[in-house]
Design a binder for these strands. Structure first.
Lengths: 251, 251
DNA sequence: CTTGACTCTGCACGAAGTTGCACGTTTTAT
DNA sequence: ATAAAACGTGCAACTTCGTGCAGAGTCAAG
C-alpha cells in the first residue's frame, strides 16, 4: 500500500467516524504503529487533522465544538443578514442555506412578511418556528454534521421538486478566479442543485470569505446574480469582480 | 475513547444541560470518577467550565437560560429517555420522533454507540450533531411548527424509503380504548408511516399522557410493541392495558 | 550491472501521558 | 455532631509517543 493511499484512508476513516485510533489503524492496515504515528504527524502538520494522544480527531469541527462557533455573529454578518432579508418580497419562495450568516437572515425577517422558505438546514428550520407567517419546507437527506445541513442524493432529489425565486447562498471562500468554494464536495453539489432551481442566486459573503478559496468549487462567479458584502469591503470586492455582471450590495 | 473526545463530550453535555455531575459522567462513559475529576479540573484550568463540588457548571453565566429551559424536562422524561437510549443496540437503524421526551433520548445516547438515527424533527437532528458516532438522516417535508416536525406527502414518501429496527414514538395521549392520539391529523399520518416502516414501535409516555386522549388517533394500543413509562406509574398502566401484548418498561 | 543517495518501514528504548486505586482531607447532608 | 459523599495527591501499572538506527526497496548516474 502506498503512503498516499494510506493517508487518504486515514482521512476517509476520520471523516466517516469522527476519530481515528492509532492502534486500530495499525491492525487494520497491517503496519506498525510507528508508521501510523508518522502519517498522523505529517497529516497534522498539513493541517488536515488534529493530533491527540491515542489517535487523531478532525481538524476543524472538534475545535468548533469547543469554542462555540455559533456565538461569533459579527456586526457584519448581522448587517448582511438584514440586507438579505430586505430583498424578499411578499409571497416569494426562497431557498436559504445553512450557516451563521443565513441564521442572521432569518432572524431579521419582518414578522409581517408572508413567504415560503425552503432549507436543508435543520437549524434554520428551528429558527423559523417562531415566525408567524413564514411557511417552512425542510429538505431531507443525510446530515453533514460539520455544516449541519442535509446532503446526498435524496437531498438533491428533494430540491428538484422545488422552484424558488431567490436562493441565498453561504460560502466558505469567494475568489476572483476560482469562484465560490466550500469545504465539502457533497455540500457543493447541494448548493449547485439549489442554484439550478432558483431564478436568482445571491451570495452572502462576510469579510473573511473574500479572496479565500476552499477545495471544492461550487460555481464560477459569473453564474450568480448578486453578492452581499459588509460595508468597508466594497472597494475590494468591486475591484476583484469588475466585469462579472454581479450586482454587489453593501450591507 | 480518546481523552480529547471525552472532554468535548463533557463540554457538549454541559452546554446542553447547563450542568454536569461527575458521578453520572463516570457511569455514562464507563470510567473512574478520578479520571472525570481530572478532566473537569483541566477544563476548568482552561477556563472552559467552572468547577463545583459534585460536578461542573458553565464558565460563563450566558448559558444560564439553557439550564432554565432544561428544567422543564422532568426527571420522569429524563428517565424515560435514558431507558429508551439503552434499548438501542450498536449498528441499529432507529426512527426518532420529535418532542421533549425524545430529546432526552438522544441526549442519553452513550458516546461510543454507533447507530443510524432517522428523524423528521430538525431539533433532534441538531441535537445529534455533537454525537461523534451517530449517522443522522433527516426526513424533509412541510414544517409543522407546533411540533417542529416535517409532515405532509413528501415526508411520508421519504419515510417509505427507509426501514428501521426501532421507532421511538412520542404521543399526546394514550388511552386504553382510544389508543394513541395526537393533536394533528398530518402528524398522525407521519407517525403511522414511521410505525409501518419499523420492525418495532416503542411509545415513550410521560405520566401526563396516560389516560388522556387527543382528537386524532394514530394507532390502537395493540399495534405497538413496547411502552416506556415513569417509575410510579406502572400500576396504573398495567391496569389499563393488561391484555394488550405490549411490553411495559418502567424507567 | 553496480554504486550511492534517498525513502520507507519496523524495532528498541527512554520519555511522556493516562488511568485506577489508596489514603487522608474537605465539603455536604442529616 | 456524625456519616456519607466528593475531593486532591501520590503512586504504580500500563499505554502511547518520539527519536535514533538498521535493513529493505527504489531510482538514476556512472
Amino acid at each position: 500500500m502506498l503512503t498516499q493511499q494510506r493517508k487518504a484512508h486515514i482521512l476517509a476513516v476520520l471523516k466517516q467516524t469522527g476519530q481515528v485510533v492509532a492502534k486500530s489503524l495499525s491492525e487494520q492496515l497491517d503496519l506498525s504503529e510507528d508508521t501510523i504515528r508518522r502519517d498522523l504527524r505529517e497529516l497534522a502538520a498539513e493541517g488536515l487533522l488534529q493530533r491527540v494522544h491515542g489517535g487523531a480527531l478532525p481538524a476543524s469541527p472538534a475545535l468548533a465544538d469547543f469554542s462555540g462557533r455559533q456565538a461569533i455573529a459579527t456586526d457584519g454578518k448581522k448587517a448582511i443578514g438584514r440586507a438579505a432579508a430586505a430583498m424578499i418580497r411578499p409571497g416569494q419562495v426562497v431557498f436559504v442555506d445553512g450557516g451563521t450568516t443565513t441564521v442572521q437572515l432569518v432572524r431579521h425577517l419582518p414578522p409581517e412578511l408572508e413567504a415560503t422558505i425552503i432549507t436543508h438546514s435543520p437549524s434554520i428550520a428551528v429558527e423559523l418556528v417562531s415566525h408567524p407567517r413564514i411557511t417552512v419546507e425542510l429538505i431531507g437527506g443525510r446530515l453533514f454534521k460539520h455544516s449541519v445541513v442535509a446532503v446526498g442524493a435524496s437531498a438533491i432529489e428533494a430540491i428538484a421538486r422545488y422552484r424558488a425565486d431567490i436562493y441565498f447562498m453561504g460560502v466558505t471562500g469567494i475568489h476572483p478566479e476560482t469562484g465560490l468554494t466550500t469545504g465539502d464536495s457533497e455540500e457543493a453539489a447541494v448548493k449547485r442543485a439549489l442554484s439550478r432551481h432558483a431564478a436568482e442566486t445571491i451570495v452572502l459573503a462576510s469579510s473573511e470569505k473574500l479572496g479565500a478559496a476552499s477545495p471544492y468549487v461550487i460555481l464560477p462567479m459569473n453564474e450568480i446574480q448578486g453578492l452581499i458584502v459588509e460595508r468597508g469591503t466594497r472597494d475590494e470586492t468591486m475591484a476583484a469582480y469588475p466585469a462579472a455582471g454581479v450586482s454587489v450590495t453593501v450591507a
